[in-house]
């Protein structure tokens, strides 16, 4: 329970910080970065949070499930004859992003490995 309490606290801290500084980053992501820093500086001990964090992360897909159910309202915004075009654009552009990102990351990883040979 201590772990969950800490995670909820950081989520709330993310919301507060976003509001005070009007940051354009999502509150959850701010909370995550704050939490990572706190682990880093030893303010939060890993063993306090590991149990709760492992459980929540392992079942993260459950927490996205209602969002996916929500996609059934797509037809309210897109006419039926345009659905195929939307599906095509979604799939094709997602694949393009995956490949572009993956290729660049792969290329740079190889260059880094060459720069400091033996370092993995």
């Amino acid at each position: 329970m201590l772990g969950l309490a800490i995670l909820l606290m950081f989520q709330f801290a993310g919301i507060l910080l976003k509001e005070w500084l009007s940051l354009p980053i999502p509150a959850n992501v701010i909370g995550m970065l704050l939490f990572t820093c706190s682990l880093f500086f030893g303010w939060v001990k890993l063993q306090w949070v590991e149990g709760a964090a492992t459980f929540l992360i392992r079942h993260m897909m459950l927490f996205f499930l209602p969002y996916v159910v929500g996609t059934l309202v797509l037809s309210r915004y897109v006419e039926t004859n345009k659905l195929l075009a939307v599906a095509f654009s979604l799939v094709a552009s997602t694949i393009a992003v995956l490949l572009a990102t993956g290729w660049v990351a792969k290329l740079l990883e190889r260059k880094e490995a060459e720069a400091n040979a033996g370092d993995r």
């Binding site: 959850n28 995550m32 990572t36 682990l39 890993l46 992360i57 993260m60 927490f63």
Partner: peptide, 18 residues
Amino acid sequence: ILFMLGPATVALGVPLYK
């Protein structure tokens, strides 16, 4: 259920830290 996405996203700090 969506509410739990908040603490779950924060929890990603654990693999980030490790």
